[in-house]
Write a protein that binds this DNA or RNA. Structure first.
Lengths: 116, 116
DNA sequence: ATTCGATATGCCATATTTGCATAACGCTCG
DNA sequence: CGAGCGTTATGCAAATATGGCATATCGAAT
């Protein structure tokens, strides 16, 4: 019934730079080649995806996405090297933490007590 | 410049039960003997403290605080055994995680790259 | 009965998030 | 060279979450 959840994110001067959701968005953009395809696949609105990218780039002060408007497909988007580095570093810090926390939680919650 | 932050909390059916802030609130209530004294010491409004307690008790379906209105001091508040158990379990799951994450972050961020 | 400081709660202002609608863009193809 | 297409880009309003102010309520001590 009771469970544990966690979040981990990078921040600059207190403002959030990237967490799991934004990290996933970048990966989806890399995979599907456009912001709109990525948002469709993730089940979020294009508006939300675009706002997230805007916030990340403004926070970091560097371009994360190369945008191209026009063309037969209407446009495309791809990741800069900075974005790829950011994903890699986030993954190395956050990787496996959720499993570690779940494991700790199971150890604690299986004990006797009034909470189950 | 860039830093890492994290949160960990218990949840029931998706709704948050307790995180660091609410855990601290319970500890302060235990220490100072009233909700209002606890909120003063924490620098939050009584309204916010009360709402947090309300949300926790409704989420868990058990009383966490014993409230007493009236008396020379106007009233008092103390923790139930359930609340004490909840604090202890939260601390054992969350304890030291922030340091672990900080350590991982330092390892990753000291490397070469475009992000500093 | 009065007093006191705490608990309890309604109400509203503000901030944040979310979704809708639409403009702007530019490559491609006829 | 103009029309068409699907994307990027953005204003705006609705919905939701957050937080503070004001005030009612309570009950033991005196």
């Amino acid at each position: 019934m009771i469970g544990v959840r966690s979040k981990i994110w990078f921040a600059i001067r207190g403002s959030p730079l990237i967490g799991q959701g934004r990290r996933d968005l970048l990966v989806y953009i890399d995979r599907f080649g456009s912001i709109s395809a990525a948002s469709r696949e993730m089940g979020i609105s294009y508006r939300k995806a675009w706002s997230s990218i805007q916030a990340m780039e403004e926070c970091l002060g560097k371009k994360l996405i190369v945008r191209r408007r026009g063309g037969r497909d209407g446009g495309t988007a791809s990741l800069t090297d900075v974005a790829k580095e950011l994903i890699a570093k986030y993954d190395r810090v956050a990787g496996g933490l959720s499993e570690l926390i779940d494991h700790r939680f199971e150890e604690v919650v299986k004990e006797q007590g009034k909470i189950h």
